[in-house]
Write a protein that binds this DNA or RNA. Structure first.
Length: 281
DNA sequence: AATCTACACAACCGCCTTATT
DNA sequence: CAATAAGGCGGTTGTGTAGAT
């Protein structure tokens, strides 16, 4: 006898979230805070299971999510942390402010593991692949991209520009268990959904922010395209440094050094874990 | 223009851990 | 201590879309 499923699946919506559902979820969390995921959908008027709501919020709607490309520094840190921690995505994500475990996991699976492989490194062990394996990998790559597609040029990991993800955030900060100050709305408090989205553009190349927004109450145009905008989090994650400053490399290196130091002085995994997790508090 | 293919990533699923009763 | 509920995590799948044919 297992426990009951997290929700009865009968009559529940599945698949991609609609703008309306997002709005309902955001509104509810603004008013009541996160948590109680099981009962949340009903109270919020959503035909979703609690897990789905939690996932949507955590990976997509939370206002402190960082958008846009993963930087070279972040790349580097992910690889190094992965070599220490393995597939513990939430721990890794905890060291990358604004990034979610899902995002990092996806990024690893679609980009980094392939890159490591092509560089002759086993993405699981982070050790050099033995030559025969390496050759097999390259051969496979060649045949899969070559044979039937003669026109396609060899793909040397061209850096992709990630288009800003379409997101919906409120012009106001979400307040409750989390208090954020997001890119600002011109108006103060008030009923969020009755406010027009501010159009906010800051094309500062250093990533302080870029956000365009549309809002139309009557149709589905309530999308925001955000890229690399940042919502300064004033909640408990004081240890989180916001990336995008010139100190990034230093702080990331520092962090990695901490891990290494711990590894050198203590091989005990449990201690490593608790250290890692203590950083997340 | 229509169809096919590969890719990126959002979402789901099942299991594990932790909290509560 | 056992049973149950809830939260959280990682693996995997499904869907949308851009680019190729």
């Amino acid at each position: 006898m297992g426990r009951a499923p997290c929700c009865s699946k009968v009559g529940l919506h599945r698949g991609p979230w609609t703008p309306r559902e997002d709005t309902l979820l955001v509104k509810y969390i603004q008013a009541h805070g996160e948590g109680h995921w099981r009962s949340l959908p009903k109270k919020a008027g959503l035909l979703r299971c609690g897990k789905s709501c939690r996932l949507r919020w955590m990976n997509y709607l939370r206002p402190d999510i960082k958008r846009g490309n993963i930087t070279a520094d972040e790349d580097d840190l992910i690889i190094r942390l992965h070599s220490l921690l393995g597939n513990r995505w939430s721990l890794i994500a905890g060291r990358l402010p604004g990034r979610t475990d899902n995002e990092i996991k996806n990024y690893w699976n679609t980009h980094l593991s392939k890159r490591l492989l092509s560089q002759g490194t086993d993405p699981n062990t982070h050790k050099k692949l033995p030559d025969p394996v390496l050759q097999a990998v390259r051969k496979r790559k060649k045949t899969s991209s070559g044979a039937n597609k003669p026109k396609k040029p060899p793909e040397p990991e061209k850096p992709k520009i990630h288009l800003p993800k379409p997101i919906r955030v409120t012009p106001n900060s979400v307040q409750c268990t989390n208090t954020f100050s997001t890119v600002s709305s011109s108006q103060g408090g008030g009923e969020v959904l009755q406010l027009p989205w501010t159009e906010y553009v800051n094309d500062d190349e250093n990533g302080t922010g870029f956000l365009t927004a549309y809002y139309n109450n009557n149709d589905d145009r309530d999308f925001i395209n955000g890229s690399d905008f940042e919502c300064q989090s004033h909640h408990h994650h004081h240890h989180h440094q916001v990336l995008g400053t010139e100190d990034d490399s230093d702080s990331l290196d520092k962090l990695y050094e901490e891990y290494l130091q711990l590894l050198r002085t203590n091989e005990d995994q449990v201690q490593l874990d608790s250290f890692a997790e203590s950083l997340l508090l």
